[in-house]
Design a protein around this nucleic acid. Structure first.
Lengths: 134, 134
DNA sequence: GTACAGATTCCGGTTACTGGAAGGTCAAGA
DNA sequence: TCTTGACCTTCCAGTAACCGGAATCTGTAC
């Protein structure tokens, strides 16, 4: 099948599939007589794998590792689990960071009248810092 | 003062300060006889503003707007509050997304023995999709 | 044959920096 | 005054993960 069909079946855009081939994440596809990329079911399976892994927040580099482990019948599941746990940690760190931002912004927004007048605690905080910065 | 001092006092790296000047987020700094950038206390205040705004997750474009509002004595606080609320929404969306990823990863990791054997539910899920994908 | 959808490659752009090379300036110490 | 090392400058390309668009070719239905 052509790249359009592979895209449809995998859920990844054609551009992304070409990009993955370019960076060597997936092998170069076979070609038709006319020069079109030609994919089969196994190719689509890999593309789906990548879509799911990316969707879980694994970086392209990590996807490369995951694919390698997937292809390795001798792999130790410990290696896979380590990648997943690392991802979880990163995600948790990010969540904490985002929650802190939200708290500050929420606090500032709650104290802002949000009317036509110029006085604004949000700008004041940005300009002079709040109690957590003194 | 030189860029190094401005960097120290603002908390932004010299490279970032130069970058902000390049993209016009801050005005071009005055220069010493020797060609070094020269900053004063007000410049540092603006840099601090930017550091805090970036730290709250505002994009460079949003920082541009915030600075504009800050400089505008006639601003309406409503405009500032709108930016903050927008940021809060974006952050909340991101948190929800991250929590979903974490849940899936946590579930998969919990079911993975993480030993020397090759069987791994994480890879299986990536390869074939889980119940939430059928 | 015609027309349109889909494919190709190439190139530059997105966002927010940031490292490094090559070379100049400054200030303290000898 | 000279030396040395820290700091500064500009320029350029890279990071990560795509993705839009231009120019051109291919394939299929009518």
């Amino acid at each position: 099948m052509n790249i359009g069909s592979a895209a449809e079946q995998s859920g990844l855009p054609p551009k992304t599939i070409r990009y993955y081939e370019e960076i060597g994440l997936i092998p170069a596809a076979g070609r038709t007589q006319g020069g079109y990329r030609d994919y089969d079911g196994t190719d689509v399976e890999i593309l789906r794998f990548l879509r799911r892994a990316r969707g879980l927040g694994f970086s392209v580099a990590e996807c490369r590792e995951l694919l390698s482990l997937y292809r390795d019948r001798e792999r130790a599941s410990a290696d896979v689990k380590a990648l997943a746990l690392q991802r979880i940690e990163d995600i948790e760190r990010k969540i904490v960071e985002l929650e802190s931002m939200r708290r500050t912004l929420r606090h500032l927004a709650d104290h802002c009248r949000g009317d036509e007048r110029p006085n604004c605690p949000i700008l004041d905080d940005l300009a002079f810092g709040g109690t957590n910065e003194s």
